[in-house]
Simulated assay, not measured.
Amino acid sequence: MKSKSFTDFLKNISLKSCHVLDASISKAQYTLLDLSEANTELDTVDVSSSSKLETYIHNHIKKQNAKVAFGGYLEVRTIYKRSKHFNNTEAEERNIHLGIDLWSEANTPIFAPLDATVHSFKNNINYGDYGPTIILKHHIKAIEFYTLYGHLSVSSIDNLEVGNVFKRGEQIATLGDATVNGDYPPHLHFQIIKDLQGFVGDYPGVCSKQDLAFFKTNCPDPNLLLKL
């Protein structure tokens, strides 16, 4: 399936929002958050500190009278410079974010946006990585694709099994805190993946500029489903 037709397919799956957080949270209670290198406010924040970044995000949500901050698709971020997981001497820097982040409190429930089965799960424990992660497989109108949920609580994968079935709107997980989620303020990394390329319980959520063309096609904008 061509990239254009796949994005059209995703956009037309549902006319209404496909929720990954509590459906009772209205769109008006979501606020955009810019964590890109272009946001000069971040120059005064120690983004290498999860607690200081959490304070910045919490204050932003409060200032906007919101409940959830969201954003980040294709953002170029400097936050990843703190971790060797994204940067080494052998490859170009990975700093372009491929999912949407939804920033909320630890233990916030996460829900299946569509009917799904569990493809795989894993605790990705590298510093700056996802921590506990679930990948769901979706099969709609003969088209198969995947959604990834990163930065979860450890309990989210404790009793999970490959092949478990979730209906749209069923709770699949809860958010983890900085002690388990790769050392970030609590948030969900939500990503759509067309071809998993053999990955199990993991898939790149950040890419380099040189690989952007491929990943932009393989990981289209999650807002096609979320409609925020």
Rank of each mutant, 00 (worst) to 15 (best):
T108I: 01
D129P: 02
K122S: 13
P113G: 15
I125A: 06
K81S: 11
K141N: 12
R94W: 00
D158A: 11
F111K: 04
H97F: 10
H97I: 03
T147K: 06
E144S: 11
Y127C: 02
N159Q: 06
F111S: 14
L98Q: 12
K122Y: 08
V162K: 15
A106H: 02
K81R: 15
D158G: 00
H138L: 07
L148T: 04
I140L: 09
L152F: 10
E161N: 12
E90F: 05
G99F: 00
V162Y: 09
A116L: 12
D158M: 10
S120M: 08
H119D: 11
P132V: 10
K141S: 15
E90G: 08
Y80E: 06
L102V: 01
G150P: 01
S156F: 05
S104Y: 05
I100T: 07
F86E: 11
G128V: 07
K137N: 09
S104V: 01
Y130Q: 03
S83Y: 15
H138D: 11
T108F: 03
F121T: 14
G99L: 01
P109R: 04
L114D: 05
I96D: 02
H138W: 11
D129R: 02
I100Q: 02
A112K: 05
Y130K: 04
A116N: 11
F121G: 03
E161A: 14
I135D: 05
P132G: 07
N107K: 07
L114Y: 05
L98I: 02
H97N: 09
A91W: 06
G150D: 08
I157Q: 13
A142H: 09
I143M: 09
D101S: 13
D101C: 07
S104D: 14
S156A: 15
H138A: 06
E92H: 04
Y149W: 06
H151T: 05
Y149S: 12
G128I: 05
N95K: 10
S83T: 00
L136T: 08
F86S: 03
L98N: 05
